[in-house]
Design a protein around this nucleic acid. Structure first.
Lengths: 239, 239
DNA sequence: TGGCGTCCGTGCGATAGCGCACATATTGCC
DNA sequence: GGCAATATGTGCGCTATCGCACGGACGCCA
């Protein structure tokens, strides 16, 4: 039975070969991803791998002093729990649901079984991981060189790409945690974008009015990541 | 024939199982890594994988406007060219020799052959890659939250760990490129450290006088990365 | 010995983002 | 409708870093 293509499907799952898909399907459990839910804690064990479908998950790094920053953002294009098959079993980062929705999860040992067969699953997941690495690298450089306005644009675009519609449910306080800046700074930056008619802000709901404008205003980081992602994981024909 | 353990050996190679090592040994070519040499360019094809022994290689991200930042630093503990076996064949980053020395290199196809057997080589390399991911993530957060003084300490320590002795051959200008800041800023920060007797600076040569002091003054990022690295790649018995 | 290129120290105004405090607005709950 | 909790807007002094410019020091080489 073919899965429905489109934004409600996890793209990694969709890219699996038919045989693989049918083997996993009985074990994939759809779960709720409520806002703020922690999928795994820094250094903690992972029992499952998550494939977001409508939810968005942030990989957050938290410092000793409580400061934090998002190192990557994962939606229906990816998976949460890469360190499992990378062999480390845990990472020093935390995975938090940033936008409520749903996702499919798979037991860790099942995934590992398949991974160790060194077939197409392995190579798909590795390419995905490389895309993730690009995203993290770009984040590092972006944090150093670009203004908050630019970074906010980048962040909005990345989030928007993982949602339907043009609305984000997201307080400025949350965004500030992700970007690793003060809440006031986000107010400022959002004010600028709002003033120029790119977005509308209304108590936790951001409406993107001019997506192209955001792209123009964003730093190059958004485009680079997107391009590299497309290169590594070209849209595959749904099985 | 057992390889000589110690700092002159690449630790990844040393961690290979005996059988693997003997298969590769005839094909490992020792090459010079002169200062400033570019191992691969952003987006370029990779024909070889490099295992630094005495040299140090920086993975640099370069922006459109020329701004740059180091996202990871690779010495005899690691390898340059991970994107090869990750399946992407290239990355948007540049690999530059940051400290002259030597390294072993291996033809790409040979490495892939072994990798695809899904044996111990695969799992070793993946664990290494995860350590690399940690380093990149930490860099991203560090760029956001920590002062230049702290970051310089971190950077010096990371470099020092990959060298013998306590001297770094390194101009402030080079360091500024790595850290993604102005040269003047590095002068400032180095001046501070110098004033407190932690280092001595002399025209391109940094002598570390008080390593413990550097560690105390550095941000947590150094320790986190080191710890995670030790966890993922514990010192293996040399074959 | 003298010259030149590289490298390092320093000063100064500009600015982005911090830290904090407070005012205001919206929402949900009773 | 009133109240508490949450979310957003704003002001102000502070600090780190930027951007730029210049001067001095060192080292190599003729």
């Amino acid at each position: 039975m073919p899965a429905t293509p489109g934004p409600l499907t996890n793209e990694l799952l969709a890219a699996l070969p038919e045989s693989q898909w049918s083997r996993w399907q009985p074990f994939l459990l759809e779960v709720d991803l409520p806002l703020g839910h922690v999928l795994y804690e820094s250094g903690g064990k992972m029992s499952h791998v998550y494939f977001p479908t409508t939810g968005i998950v942030s990989l957050l790094y938290v410092l000793e002093d409580g400061g934090s920053a998002e190192i990557a953002i994962v939606g229906n294009e990816g998976l949460v729990g890469a360190s499992l098959f990378m062999g480390g079993l845990s990472t020093p980062s935390r995975a938090v649901v940033q936008s409520a929705g749903k996702g499919d999860r798979l037991k860790a040992d099942l995934m590992m079984e398949e991974f160790n067969l060194a077939g197409p699953v392995l190579h798909l997941l590795l390419r995905y991981t490389q895309a993730l690495i690009t995203k993290m690298s770009q984040t590092a450089v972006c944090n150093r060189h670009h203004t908050l306005d630019q970074q906010l644009c980048r962040w909005l675009l990345l989030s928007l790409d993982r949602l339907q519609g043009n609305e984000l449910v997201m307080t400025q306080d949350l965004i500030s945690n992700m970007l690793g800046v003060r809440r006031d700074g986000v107010t400022d930056a959002a004010g600028n974008l709002s003033k120029d008619g790119l977005i509308r802000y209304k108590r936790g709901i951001i409406t993107v009015l001019d997506r192209l404008g955001l792209e123009r205003r964003s730093c190059e980081c958004y485009a680079v990541v997107k391009k590299e992602y497309d290169r590594l994981l070209p849209a595959t024909v749904a099985h």
